[in-house]
Write a protein that binds this DNA or RNA. Structure first.
Lengths: 341, 341
DNA sequence: CATTAGCACTCTAGCCTTGAGAGTGCTAAA
DNA sequence: TTTAGCACTCTCAAGGCTAGAGTGCTAATG
């Protein structure tokens, strides 16, 4: 498995600690893993590992626990060997998700619940990043005096609505004409593309000064500027059962993270660019509030384009193998559902 | 204020306990409230109150704390005297809410946050009960093979979308005709009314057997059957700071309540029928999971019709006066916003 | 020279005791 | 009817003690 003894032992310590939250001592290692070495030798090696920054002691004369660097070693090794596909687990997840999969937000909400029930950590699912989705249709309604309600539909099956303030006496007929125009013109393009085009068009129309079209474009300008999408976070009660969250301080930290959805969105958006499942361990985390938690993330795609992110948030002492399997299976499944039409 | 000494003392105990979470003893009452009675007398009265079920002792030789019945006495008295309008608080709430108030879901989400930040308890806001809202318009899109996406707009400014499975080769033109028909036919009616009418229509159309209309009605039937609306719950981190939630057990209870939004919806829906602010204390609560918490609720209305509910969830040891003021102000404000068009 | 056995040392967690403090209930006096 | 007094009860925090686990170092071993 490993060549160096030092790696074997580090691996053993991490694995053991992940399995049960007791600091692991030298004697324990000799018993559970058969290295044919005495406790004293293990002790020396573990002292080395501590000096190298892979392990630490909660206090003198307790066993050792991994540092973030230690977990990193463990996870990197996990990733190296071909992903140990736990087919049983994968199938179970897919089986449960298959039941619903009607509209995408429902699917994502269910996915976040699934992620949490299977992992016993927090499950997170971000709806597709608005600017990456493909425009399908728009409807405009005269909503109140001076306000228009715009309702979008995207290819991904997302419905978004937005109130636009506009001081103009547009009738419902005008609005219908505008929306017909927009639908024929922009349907099938991503919002990113559309925005770029609008900027060009605006310039042209300013010169032509066609009032209706000009107004239409003004509406677009507002309508197509999006805030973040939905975030689905589940599993708080799941997490509270964990030994890692037995003290109030940590509970407060995690619950603050849950309430501050904006932070989560930014974090996940920032991190999820690379291919496949990504693991962020404790202090590797860019956000200060998250430096005590680990993230396991993956993007789901439409075709080849990654459009959104799902993942798991848990303590650094996480069952990474299981978490990676779960996240991977879920992301793949969502990707498949999105391609199936 | 009260005539009977026994009431005076009960009031004092409840108020004192609400102010700070220490069981209140007889000596403490004599000092803080000037009854010109000795501790011994207070003691006797308190023993009486315990026998009557208004107070209880956590253990022999601790002070007394109110039972749910004790709180009920306190709240009933609060309601009797004309609602002590804390104008300052009311204005502050309204001022903060005024900023947004664009679409109703945004308003409700903000309202739930406001309820929690002002009260330091959980803030809850239910979006209007779907069947009570007024239908404004519908749009149908051919979504996938065998599926139709229906998007509704209500007078209240809510957008709802629903995927309808239908194995029929309806073109987008057909769908447009159907939605035009529905819009002209049903616009301005509540979903309750519409449902009733559909049943009648269905019967007629079955006989006439006009395929398009028949299909339209089939769509309606599915489209107008709603699940619950949105629920917005905020303030978990707020609540965790409270002395009432210093032990893990209670935290788990409340977090389970937050995750089980369905329960909250059912509970609030079931309770909010009467006029004005309503207070449900601990064991008065119909749901077993909620018997340790108190609710302060009020409906918001459109015109005269109550269409949704907001409220506060907190421990039974709650600052009821403040909570009532906050809930009342918020509900009134939402009602006003909904009328302002 | 790497490995191991042995041993003294350290630190925690749990348990018990102890004493202070708070509050009660009861009785007898005012 | 109210009050003063007093013995009693119970909790909570602090201190002390022990058992247990694990370490680091040293000297012996193959």
């Amino acid at each position: 498995m490993f060549e160096d003894r030092i790696h074997k032992i580090l691996w053993a310590v991490v694995e053991s600690y992940i399995t049960s939250p007791d600091p692991v001592g030298s004697r324990f290692v000799t018993k559970k893993y058969e290295f044919n070495l005495s406790a004293a030798t293990i002790r020396n090696t573990m002292a080395d590992l501590e000096e190298l920054g892979f392990l630490q002691q909660p206090h003198t004369s307790a066993g050792r626990i991994p540092t973030d660097k230690g977990y990193r070693f463990y996870v990197d090794y996990l990733s190296q060997r071909e992903s140990a596909a736990d087919d049983h687990l994968t199938n179970e997840i897919i089986g449960r998700l298959r039941v619903i999969s009607n509209d995408i937000n429902g699917l994502l909400e269910e996915a976040s619940k699934m992620l949490s029930t299977f992992s016993h950590y927090l499950g997170v699912a971000l709806s597709p990043r608005p600017e990456k989705t493909t425009f399908r249709g728009i409807n405009l309604f005269a909503y109140r005096e001076g306000s228009i309600m715009a309702v979008f539909l995207t290819d991904e099956g997302i419905v978004k609505n937005k109130v636009i303030r506009l001081d103009s006496g547009l009738t419902q007929r005008d609005l219908n004409r505008i929306s017909d125009y927009l639908n024929s013109e922009f349907s099938g393009q991503t919002f990113d593309d559309i925005k770029a085009r609008i900027v060009r068009e605006m310039y042209r129309e300013k010169i032509l000064c066609d009032t209706l079209i000009a107004k239409a474009i003004r509406i677009c300008e507002e309508a197509f500027s999006f805030d973040y999408g939905n975030v689905f976070i589940s599993g708080l009660s799941e997490v509270l059962g964990l030994p890692d969250f037995s003290d109030l301080q940590r509970i407060k930290e995690i619950s603050r993270a849950i309430e501050d959805k904006h932070l989560i969105v930014k974090l996940l958006d920032a991190l999820s660019h690379s291919e496949g499942v990504q693991v962020v361990i404790g202090s590797e985390n860019p956000a200060a509030e998250m430096k005590k938690f680990s993230l396991v993330l993956s993007s789901y795609k439409e075709g080849a384009r990654p459009i959104g992110t799902i993942g798991i948030i848990g303590p650094t002492r996480m069952d990474y193998l299981r978490a990676i399997t779960i996240v991977d299976a879920t992301a793949r499944f969502i990707t498949r559902v999105l391609s199936e039409r």
